[in-house]
């Protein structure tokens, strides 16, 4: 099993983003996904900037994949997707069926976590269209994965979202702008102030969700470090880590050492706990409500 770093889901300044990618422990990562997948208004990085970053990262030996935006609303959004789909240089992660149509039959692609692959028939169809890897929807767990793996088409790799605040929902509405009583068209890019999302709690103070512009995430950090052995048994190829604004390298290192068999059990948990920005959850993996944590036994 190898590690991947998913696309940064938050809006960071250009400087912060480039600094983040420059300082990664590149040798620990097999794949880095790049691109703005949440909101087309976030434009600190222009398409040429992403390509430049992709080329720089590729020089470190890592596989670079360009991710497309999840919610496509306008012709402008579609043009941006087409530009990525036709880049001709890097593999593309399709996060919408529109992107799939642009890629199908032309080039291999990654079927992203938002394509809703819930059964082997749909996975087989995507494989025929050219998917070389699929990312399991976050709300599925080990039992569903076992069934999907049983019928997995040859030459399709399986990737599991294993660490980070869960991308749970997308909307046309920007909840960060709403929090500041701004309209989306005049959002003043307030999501820059919340590099790990804006926490939402219940009225009795229970952490529940995190608002990240159009995207709603879990307040808890999903962490399947306790399930790595099960993933290996199920034939998972790639373990996806989702970026946080601070201490991400500590997370990557801990997962790397866990995969190498150097760190496990309470020791692993202690290291991860010192780097996580919030409590963790893992319920989805065990077929339970996602918010639960079942203290995965290693």
């Amino acid at each position: 099993m190898k590690l991947s770093l998913g696309p940064v889901l938050y809006y960071w300044t250009r400087e912060a983003l480039l600094g983040f990618y420059a300082n990664l422990p590149h040798s620990r990562l097999a794949t880095i996904y790049l691109g703005e997948v949440v909101c087309g208004r976030r434009n600190a990085m222009r398409p040429a900037d992403w390509l430049g970053l992709a080329r720089d990262l590729a020089k470190t030996g890592v596989q670079v994949v360009l991710s497309t935006q999840v919610l496509i609303e306008s012709d402008l959004d579609l043009r941006a997707v087409r530009q990525i789909a036709e880049n001709g240089e890097f593999l593309v992660e399709a996060n919408d069926m529109g992107a799939v149509r642009m890629l199908a039959g032309r080039t291999r692609f990654v079927a992203g976590p938002h394509l809703n692959v819930y059964n082997p028939t749909t996975l087989a169809w995507l494989a025929e269209l050219g998917a070389c890897r699929w990312v399991m929807p976050v709300e599925l767990g080990r039992d569903a994965l076992a069934l999907l793996q049983r019928d997995r088409p040859a030459a399709v790799q399986t990737e599991v979202f294993a660490y980070g605040r869960l991308p749970l929902a997308f909307s046309a509405r920007c909840f960060t702008a709403r929090h500041y009583n701004l309209s989306k068209d005049d959002c003043q890019y307030r999501c820059l102030e919340h590099p790990d999302g804006l926490p939402l709690a219940t009225r009795e103070g229970q952490p529940f969700l995190a608002l990240n512009g159009l995207q709603t995430q879990s307040a808890q950090v999903y962490d399947l470090s306790g399930a790595l052995a099960q993933m290996r048994e199920l034939g998972v190829d790639v373990v996806r880590l989702s970026a946080q604004s601070a201490q991400m390298n500590g997370i990557i290192e801990a997962y790397h050492r866990a995969l190498e068999g150097e760190l496990s059990g309470p020791e692993l948990e202690a290291v991860l706990a010192s780097h996580r920005p919030a409590d963790y959850c893992d319920g989805y993996w065990y077929g339970k409500p996602g918010i639960e944590h079942l203290a995965a036994s290693p």
């Binding site: 919610l71 929807p137 749970l168 997308f170 709603t216 879990s218 409500p289 996602g290």
Partner: peptide, 21 residues
């Protein structure tokens, strides 16, 4: 529905059951 239909797992996050599943 304020979320994109088919792209919302809030319900399963809280209860284990969602529109998709």
């Amino acid at each position: 529905c304020v979320m994109v239909e088919g792209r919302c797992a809030l319900s399963s996050f809280a209860t284990g059951q969602s529109p998709n599943t």
